[in-house]
Amino acid sequence: MSNNLFIQSLLITLVAFVGYMHCFWGSTMNNRPIIVAPLVGLVLGDLKTGIMVGATLELIFLGAVPIGASNPPDITSGAIIGTSFVILTGQKVGAAVALAVPVATLVLLFDNLQMMFTLTWATHQADKYAAIGDYKKVERVARIAGIGNKLILSLVVGIAFYLGVPVIKDVLAMIPEFIINGMDVAAGMLPAIGFAMLARMIITKELSPYLLAGFLLAAYVNVPVFGVALAGLVIAALVFFKELKQQKEQVIVDDNEF
């Protein structure tokens, strides 16, 4: 049992590292709950629950995106620990939310401490090498500090999983109640912010008919959400190929050499 837990902890650490390294691969969004939660499900042998928890937490953290110097809760750690808790204890999917939000906030505080001290020190080192024109060492410091930061966060998640949920709950119990209440309020606002961000992109003069069509299909024809999504995919493909054809026709017609 101990060896199995150790192997699972290593795999959970690897899942966390893949999630945290998303920015090194062009912001692939591997850190989102919809990605890491199913991976946790694979590690723990319950992919179905992993997908369900990932979808639930994705809705909760939909508005959790970094804007400027403001960092949102650490969604990767929250999703991994929340999913692990549900799978290992057999709790309902909603229980992941109660654990994911405070864990994500706690790990964010730890990450901010790293940025204040470790990454700041690395920045000063890079400045020294830049002053003497040694760009190779500047690049080396940036890579080591950046990857090292993600590796440390991954180890924190792996150790938290190894220690178990009771230890995590004891740590969370040390946090003052007013902070927990504030996090609960923030967690309740995040889905609304996420929906508002999506609505701002969707509700335009050009796209509003498609939004209305999807609503009518779901409300009056009883088409499931997946069916509406497939219909949207077909419409998007038709519009894309139509515009592509029009662009090709314009290129062929435009024979003006001047």
Rank of each mutant, 00 (worst) to 15 (best):
Q91K: 15
V156K: 06
V53A: 08
F110V: 09
A187I: 03
G26E: 07
S84Q: 01
I81V: 13
V223F: 12
L47W: 12
V228Q: 01
A79W: 00
A64D: 08
M21F: 04
L217N: 00
L163C: 05
V18Y: 06
V225H: 01
I168K: 08
N3S: 14
Q247I: 11
A96C: 13
G148E: 03
C23Y: 11
K137F: 10
G82W: 05
G63E: 02
V253R: 11
F17R: 07
G63M: 03
I7F: 14
L62C: 05
V225M: 09
G50V: 03
I179F: 05
L212A: 15
L57N: 02
I12P: 09
R32D: 00
S84F: 01
L62M: 15
Q247E: 10
L172R: 03
L216T: 09
V40N: 07
V65H: 00
P209F: 02
L108P: 00
L59N: 02
V253G: 02
G41E: 12
A126C: 06
E243P: 00
A55E: 13
L113P: 00
Y20M: 07
T83D: 02
D134M: 05
N31A: 04
N71E: 11
D74C: 05
I252E: 11
A126E: 08
T49S: 09
V167C: 07
I75D: 04
E139V: 08
Q250S: 04
I235W: 08
L57I: 08
M183T: 14
S2L: 14
W121V: 15
S84C: 11
D111Y: 06
E177L: 13
G188F: 00
P191G: 04
A126W: 04
V93E: 10
T76S: 07
L11M: 12
Q8M: 12
P191V: 01
Y220P: 04
G148N: 07
L217Y: 01
A229V: 15
H22L: 02
I132C: 07
K128R: 14
M197G: 09
Q114N: 07
I203D: 05
A229E: 01
D111F: 04
D170R: 13
N256W: 10
C23T: 14
N222V: 04
M183F: 15
I80P: 04
V167R: 06
L5A: 15
T49A: 06
L44K: 11
A199W: 01
I81T: 08
V15W: 03
V93S: 09
L172T: 05
M21W: 02
G90P: 04
I34V: 13
E177C: 03
D46I: 07
A192F: 03
F61P: 00
L216E: 02
T28H: 06
